[in-house]
């Protein structure tokens, strides 16, 4: 993102206790509010703040062909289709254009790491709060250390 955020991420990642505190704070906040699945590469701001990793197939680029007519999941008929929720919320928030973003395959090394620090370090897409779609090219960076 910027020199400052990269420095913050680097400092945090050098101090395991601090990193764990950040991760704990992030999880308390995101798991409670968004049902975060801890993939470490957050796309909430692109998906109208509904976590797409709650989908049984972990679809990141739109719904599978099995959405039921009443907007329920094909695998768990008592749960809503996550992409149905994402679409409805995006429509309501005027953020449908953001759904057109192509999301690259999940980097499994980032699972259970802090998405905020990954974002600060420039490993993943930055938070995008504007309504238009911005194309962002990311440089390749090493994954964070794990303790």
């Amino acid at each position: 993102m910027s020199k400052l955020t990269e420095a913050i991420a680097e400092f945090t990642e050098r101090h395991p206790t601090l990193y764990r505190c950040v991760l704990f704070g992030e999880n308390v906040f995101k798991k409670a509010i968004f049902g975060c699945q801890d993939c470490g590469q957050c796309v909430l701001s692109y998906n109208a703040f509904v976590c797409c990793m709650r989908c049984p197939k972990q679809m990141r680029n739109g719904p599978c062909g099995g959405t039921r007519p009443n907007g329920r999941c094909e695998v768990y008929p008592n749960r809503p289709c996550i992409w149905w929720l994402i679409y409805k919320r995006a429509k309501w928030m005027g953020r449908v254009a953001k759904l057109k973003k192509y999301h690259v395959p999940v980097d499994r090394r980032l699972e259970h790491t802090s998405a905020w620090m990954n974002m600060f370090a420039g490993r993943i897409l930055p938070l995008d709060l504007s309504k238009e779609l911005r194309e962002i090219e990311l440089p390749k960076k090493d994954p964070p250390p794990k303790w």
Binding site: P63, W83, W84, Y87, V96
Partner: peptide, 9 residues
């Protein structure tokens, strides 16, 4: 499958 707009996207 519904919603149509999402399918086209």
């Amino acid at each position: 499958a519904e919603p149509l707009e999402m399918r086209i996207i």
